[in-house]
Amino acid sequence: MSLLSKVKEALVCLRAGRVTLPYPAAPRPVAGNFRGRPIFDAAKCIGCGGCAANCPAREILIHDVCQEIRVLRYVGRRCTYCGRCADVCPEKAITMSTDFETATDAIGDIGQTIELFMSTCQRCGRCFKEPSPLERLKQKGYRFDDLAHDRWVFGSRAYLDTERAVDDIRIEMD
């Protein structure tokens, strides 16, 4: 009985043959809808901040330098490649690439920083149309994430200030 099962087990192995893939010597293509490292298209981005507000890992930072210039930085350290940023982007400026070989010893290799010229909309300032109330912007107005330390600051203001906003968590949440 047990000997028979040993023979059967041996057959399972023999029938399988060799299955190890030659990766990484040969490339291994991924499925078409694979979610790899997100790529931000500076030409399409309008700087609405919807991606930053809906990033579960809080890895997209926004810093308003002045009325006209907004810096958007994708840091990418803790990014889980969930693709929510690409989902909510109203301009489809974010693509989930098929790039999964992201191991690096310099984190800046993955990150992306975009400087955006913001032409102010007279009606609302920054436009983000949320898909549902669950995605609404929790931080409206100007944002001052800490770009020097790649740190999200839990706050935004209705006005631009010369003072540093870092550590200022008495914020104007709506």
Partner: peptide, 17 residues
């Protein structure tokens, strides 16, 4: 699973609703 959801393990499948 990768072909169905874009990832072999963390599917990022659900949203509320």
């Amino acid at each position: 699973a990768e072909r169905m959801t874009g990832n072999r393990k963390t599917y990022a499948l659900c949203l509320v609703g």
